[in-house]
Simulated scan of single mutants.
Amino acid sequence: MLMNKSTGAGSEAKLHYGPNAFRVLRAGKYVLCAMSGVPVPLEELRYWSAEYQEPYASAQLAAERLAK
């Protein structure tokens, strides 16, 4: 995970998702899960799709999305 020095206080981050890491484009504290809409704190973000450029709150949600 590559992060800028500035941080957004309680705001949604904008990320670019790569195959092994994500890059912060706009600082923030969380992203919204593409499947559930649940906020996922950046320090807890473990699942995303580089192809779809989407974050997921859990492995189960990621698997469901990628199975479509």
Rank of each mutant, 00 (worst) to 15 (best):
A34R: 12
V31A: 07
H16E: 08
P41I: 00
F22G: 03
Y17P: 14
G37L: 06
V40S: 06
P41V: 04
R26V: 09
G37W: 10
V38E: 13
H16M: 05
F22R: 09
Q53M: 08
Q53F: 06
Y56E: 04
R23H: 13
A57K: 11
V24P: 05
P39Y: 00
A59E: 14
Y17I: 02
Y30K: 01
S49P: 10
V38C: 02
E54L: 15
G18L: 09
L45T: 00
A21L: 14
A57V: 05
E43G: 00
A21V: 07
F22A: 08
V24A: 12
S49T: 11
V24Y: 07
R26L: 04
K29H: 12
G18K: 07
N20Q: 11
W48Y: 02
G37N: 10
P39T: 04
L15S: 10
P55K: 12
R26F: 00
P39D: 01
G18I: 03
K14W: 01
Y47W: 11
L25S: 07
P55M: 11
V38K: 12
K29F: 02
L25E: 15
R23I: 09
E12P: 08
P55T: 07
E44V: 00
E12N: 05
E44W: 01
A13L: 05
S36M: 06
C33F: 08
M35Q: 13
M35D: 11
A57N: 12
A59V: 06
P41S: 01
E44C: 00
L42Q: 01
E43L: 04
G28P: 07
E51M: 05
A57M: 14
L45K: 00
E54W: 06
V40A: 03
V40C: 05
G28I: 05
G28K: 01
S58L: 10
